[in-house]
Design a binder for these strands. Structure first.
Lengths: 197, 197, 197, 197
DNA sequence: AATGAATGAGGCTTCATTCAT
DNA sequence: GATGAATGAAGCCTCATTCAT
């Protein structure tokens, strides 16, 4: 098998990926209901029918997309997490890893956020959602028990951090802010001061 | 004007409001493209054609809705703003007024946030968006010049605050948090600590 | 309300009927799966969407059609049936009434026969089917007990009569035979001789 | 030709047959338009493209199928027909031979009947149809000239016989009747009495 | 020769909008 | 002014057919 045939073969294999990629872009730009399946096909440079060889329906497609990236981000955050380090460092780790993901995959991040609670996400997709939230919730409670964080409702602290981070990413994708590792470091410091005891 | 004509007039006047109200609910529940105009008519208890007497198109309807509430929230925040008070107090004022709005009009707030940057919003609607942001930006710069806030990019601080606030409201509408004036006070304190020098 | 408005009103009311009529013709000509809904709309001179104001789906449409005419034929045969007359006369009555229907509604008769056992007919429609068959079966058994008919399986006699009648109507619609009351009288005599003791 | 090549050859030769067999089953179950070509391929255990190596199109496939079995049944009925025997015996021969075919090939018989006058049958296929009918018509006329049959329109007698026979087979495939040689003998006697002078 | 992935025309259905009442 | 029946363009999806392997 020479280079050429390898390439051809890779192209074939990439069809579902091209579809996912195209769908991601369009769902972010126009939303789920605002995107027509043939548009996705066109951008992915495949026939409209081809989409249905790989995904049962438009809904199955969003769900596959959602699960794919939600799984990636969860793994990035949780992989070899420094469980035995102090809260301040753990917080930095989470923030940093999410920033890394958000920088490398702005569109994917936006997609995950905008489709959070949509009616077309199935139970399995919604379950994935809680993986990270539950983890963060546990972190917060532990840090609170150590007296490191403000003794407020964990959900409040979580909502503030989550929101603040998302706000920064949003400002980035809207062009009001140029995202950079440096910027996220600054944001991280601010966020920490928001919740520390 | 006799009783009869008053009634008729009141009914007539209420129709566009009923339509806006119904549209708001449905747009929040299912999104713009996910909502059918006849559904709006049904919930508003008017004929489908009636909507087109008051709004040129479905798009004109969202834009009217967006402008209506964006104007209300802008007025709530800016009306008799304590321009001569210290930054700490001004920050509290903004936060408090927005919280008031968000508590009284959760659906409206959600609507404004979810439709921020949608393609179906026209230029005029998008312009309204900047009213509050520009105001906040000016506040931040002034406070920074007084050395009260961290000397970071104003857009970053704005994004953090905006996001954090939104995160709390979101957690509220998702049921993870029970919104209350007390809760917003706590959130406000956290947010302030995030950005103060 | 003058003649003109009556006409208009009748036209409006006739829309579902026009749809049923058009569907009937096309289903007979090309079968259920061979007929496109827009074709039905075109022949009925209505918009394609209009069909869906009156029928939930293409399937609901065939079922409505089937039930409509199956009910009509059943009533024609069973209405004021001469229960107290001798078998020979009863047989003639059934045959004659069905012939009357088949002559007046050739297409409808063909439709009912060709769609008998189709997968798109729902349970309710299929239930209607048995109304006439069960009645005929009871007749046959009674006549047998009187020694008037051959002592063969009732289902066989029924199948022979049913088939023979249908064969004549078919030959008529295929142009091999010109249907007439006279012709059916002759057919009736033949059929009786086939089954009489 | 060695064992190996025989096997290969048999396999190859069997492919069109497997396709015809699969198509027959599905056409009977769901009709022509209700059956998808890939389904036929799947049931025949061949690739979808393979079908097009043997048949130009889906339409060509039904026509081939129709012609194949229409030819078989015609040969079964006409082969060494007892031209010099009396009408009663000839009638019995036809009936018996068709019964034999219908018993051995219920699905094929059903297929031929249900697709009689379909728009997708071409002229050649429809011509085959007349082979048997014309033969039967000639028989009837001859028997009539001998005064053995009722002096009614030959087409009427033909339609009655044809229909009655079909009715019995139909009742068999619908489960209302258990087909057997004995049953067909009884049916034959009935039919004869229907038309004899 | 055989395959089955790929295609895109066409089918069923929805829905924004119009218009006769 | 108000209605809602009617429309047809457009959306999701299927499937007969092709073609690269």
């Amino acid at each position: 098998m020479n280079i050429h045939s390898t390439r051809v073969s890779r192209l074939s294999t990439d069809k579902p990926d091209a579809i996912l990629e195209a769908a991601l872009e369009l769902f972010v730009e126009r939303g789920f209901h605002g995107t027509a399946v043939p548009e996705i096909a066109e951008r992915a440079k495949v026939g409209a029918g081809t989409i249905y060889r790989y995904f049962e329906s438009k809904e199955a497609l969003v769900n596959a997309l959602y699960r794919k990236w939600k799984t990636v981000i969860a793994q990035m955050v949780l992989h070899e997490f420094p469980h035995d380090r102090p809260p301040r460092e753990q917080f930095r780790a989470i923030f940093h890893r999410m920033a890394e993901f958000a920088l490398a995959h702005q569109r994917e991040f936006a997609f995950l956020e905008f489709h959070h609670h949509s009616s077309y996400l199935d139970a399995q997709s919604k379950a994935l959602e809680h993986q990270l939230l539950d983890f963060a919730d546990a972190m917060i409670r532990q840090a609170q028990s150590l007296g490191v964080l403000k003794p407020l409702e964990p959900s409040l602290l979580l909502a503030l951090m989550n929101g603040a981070f998302l706000g920064v990413v949003r400002a980035g994708s809207e062009g009001q802010l140029v995202l950079s590792p440096r910027l996220f470091q600054e944001a991280e410091q601010c966020c920490w001061e928001a919740i520390r005891a």
